[in-house]
Nucleic acid binder design. Structure first.
Lengths: 245, 245
DNA sequence: AGTCTGTATCTTGCATGCAATATTAAATAT
DNA sequence: ATATTTAATATTGCATGCAAGATACAGACT
């Protein structure tokens, strides 16, 4: 009956909407790593009660964006060097699988869409619009992963990409690295358009490695001078000694 | 001060405890795929209020064990053929990465531990104790993944393994397949003990493929006669036509 | 001064209550 | 008999309230 009902007013559950708002606050950096999430403050800010807010926080915790502190609420997760490295490793494995599948399964429309995104990104690059470039970059990678036609893969990838996003745009890259990244993207587009999975995977791999190198540099740089604040002893899973952002 | 404090009373938050209880109800099959989660009933069963229960349900939703139905609560996710296939594909990519890293990073103690688990599993195999075999099997695979020393990888793997667990033990395998699986495990142990990552990855890959074949068979078998129950039209992401368990 | 202890305040964790929505059943119409 | 409306019942979504736990601070003590 309603198989194609587009008029539906989507009364999304509140917790899901709140989760999204919180997510962007974190990803865009307004809520910085280490910040505590005060339920009263946030509930007032969003003008909702604490119940849906708490549900949203649980969601973000499982996504890895916040960390639950029993009886003390939650804080935005800090990114550590090893943490980021771990995520990059997993992303690498996932992109490899995605590249393989995408070359087989991508439709011509899919590839046209990637090309469209690519050209738009090129325009942003030429306009030196870092923010817009960034968004398009993410969308291209996500689109390639989606072309693999594996919903699980897409979901996991998206989550990791989001968590890395925070690190990535804090670590500002040089113009020369930027040009190089743009060249890599030319190759990526070319490889997938030709459904050359071997080449796609090889370029995806080095592209990722280069991204990681930039972030690694930045992490190490921000690390010099780590004695900034509280030197509380914390034999936590998230140990302070190597937490940067 | 408390760097090795084992006396700590772990007052885990209720929602987390509830999530765990619910998780095993689902994984062990007491809550079957498609079952609705009635908040009142479950809250009474666990003797808690609905608030922490709802928080737990949100957690399971993100883990992929239940599906949120706006304004209608939640239901245990059904496993579809394509869904299971997707998960297996991702698991394959993750195990490949894990095998690579584990061969490099596993300590001798780690390998001894794997051997211990393996021998215990062999004993269970010889005693035809399917349930115990199953548990040990999972623990071995998890241990190998943990040897990779990548926390993100471990977490993602664990989640997928858990979701597949439901399918795997419903699909009862033949004795001959079982023997073969046991042989494969001999090879896995051997490969990792020799830190032969090429061989480990190759055997892990075919081992996984064989597992999938068994489940695929079973899924297809349970599929013949899909007109079992409600034929409600659902142009949902989780379409009923191919939902088996 | 620095540490310890007790008190006041704030925050979280959970339970309960109420309104909105969905589900079921009954009643009516076709 | 089947389909459609209407009423009753049950269930969810969210807000609020209260008690237990955490934080901050002041005063006592070494």
């Amino acid at each position: 009956m309603d198989s194609l009902n587009n008029d539906a007013i989507d009364r999304r559950p509140l917790h899901s909407e709140v989760a999204e708002r919180l997510r962007s606050l974190i990803v865009e950096g307004e809520l910085a790593p280490g910040d505590r999430l005060n339920e009263r403050v946030l509930a007032e800010r969003f003008n909702i009660s604490r119940t849906p807010l708490r549900e949203a926080i649980k969601i973000l915790a499982l996504e890895g964006l916040v960390r639950l502190l029993p009886n003390r609420g939650a804080e935005v997760t800090r990114l550590t060097r090893s943490n980021v490295e771990d995520m990059f490793q997993v992303v690498g494995a996932l992109e490899a699988l995605a590249g393989e599948l995408a070359c087989k399964r991508a439709s011509d429309d899919d590839i046209a869409e990637i090309r469209r995104l690519h050209n738009e990104m090129l325009a942003r690059f030429e306009a030196s619009d870092r923010a817009a470039y960034f968004t398009l970059n993410q969308r291209i990678h996500a689109k390639i992963v989606d072309c693999a036609g594996n919903a699980e893969l897409s979901a996991i990838y998206r989550n990791l990409a989001q968590r890395l996003h925070r690190a990535r745009y804090m670590a500002n890259f040089s113009k020369s690295r930027w040009s190089h990244a743009m060249e890599e993207h030319e190759e990526i587009l070319d490889a997938i358009a030709n459904r050359d999975s071997a080449r796609l995977n090889s370029i995806l791999k080095s592209h990722l490695q280069n991204k990681f190198d930039v972030i690694k540099n930045w992490l190490d740089k921000s690390a010099t001078g780590p004695s900034s604040e509280d030197s509380v002893d914390a034999d936590d899973s998230q140990d302070r000694k190597t937490a940067f952002i």
